[in-house]
Design a protein around this nucleic acid. Sequence first.
DNA 1: GCCCGACTGGATCGAACGTTCCAACCAGGT
DNA 2: ACCTGGTTGGAACGTTCGATCCAGTCGGGC
Lengths: 195, 195
Amino acid sequence: MDSRDTRTRIVRAAAELLQRQGYEGASVKPIAKAAGASVSSVYHFFPGGKQELAVEALRHGAAEYADLLSEGMAASPDPAEGVAACAHLMVASLKTSSWVDGCPVAVTALETVGRVPGIQQAAEEALAQWQRLVSTAIQRSGVPADTADELASTIISTLEGAELLSRVRQDDLPLRRAATHLSQLVRFAVAEHVP
Amino acid sequence: MDSRDTRTRIVRAAAELLQRQGYEGASVKPIAKAAGASVSSVYHFFPGGKQELAVEALRHGAAEYADLLSEGMAASPDPAEGVAACAHLMVASLKTSSWVDGCPVAVTALETVGRVPGIQQAAEEALAQWQRLVSTAIQRSGVPADTADELASTIISTLEGAELLSRVRQDDLPLRRAATHLSQLVRFAVAEHVP
DNA sequence: GCCCGACTGGATCGAACGTTCCAACCAGGT
DNA sequence: ACCTGGTTGGAACGTTCGATCCAGTCGGGC
């Protein structure tokens, strides 16, 4: 059964091209070619066209990114070290891909804000999912939920922004510095709330 | 003399559309129309075509953003409060524009990383300029240059990322939380280095 | 063996893309 | 009054965009 296989190949190819070139830059024909499928198949599996495909690709990329964050936060029982581990995982992924395999949501989200509601909603859910993931990991150290939520929000923000800086500069320094500072912030919050 | 006037109108319109729709999404004809000029004029003033226009538009937007950061850091002699002021200026700018007038560099930079060298370089210079600006403001409180540089890097990262979150969620909470946490980080560094 | 619905390859659509071209324009110098 | 060189409007170029159409291929149920 190629069917489910072809579908997921298309989603994967779309996710990859979307994160590299954005929504407008990634066109349907190259996506199909990268997936080893034909344009007809794309529109067969995604009758909603490019937009529907993009939403599903975003969800796919978001799940992969969530795995990376999970792995990072699981690297140590100390969430301060976990956050740093996330940043270092991102560095590794960026380096092995020549600074191309970054956050699968940022570009597409930014260029469609307020213009393609479906995509914006998918991006929103992705960010919320990541934030929940980080927040619960922090709460395991005794930090109250609201404080952990606030921290997680800034952690996601900083990781996103630091990845932007690192990609533009082709240099892992911004991400490594972000890792240090975020660890500091988390250590603070933990020290303050667990005596 | 319309000449210089038309040119700057084109640059301004390009900067605006670039930040909202990205490099691929902002096409030449709408830019010209928004500037009240004709396509011929665009190619008259920018023989290098869309790419040359984008580079100049990026520089224009970067300077405006630098003004915002300057204003924020000048709001208080305490850099911790200055950083928070920057975030709140960004909130104000985003709110009055229905979450569309954000960082003029992020989208375009992300979608052209590794594919349009001129744009990538312009984005790199913009980020470096902002970082220098923040770093010197922090150094005025006695923080050594290398520590201030590291802080400034994370500050830019976090502001960029928080703006992404705020725009996607149409909610100023991520930026306001980032302001709090960044103030905390700066206060730390200052307290550590000035006895 | 046949049929039917899922799937695919390739041609094709109108619209929009970036870019080019040229005739017209309009000021300033002579 | 006339040229001249920077500037403009509008049509046109070939290409690519997202999307549609259709004739076919294919495998599983009858």
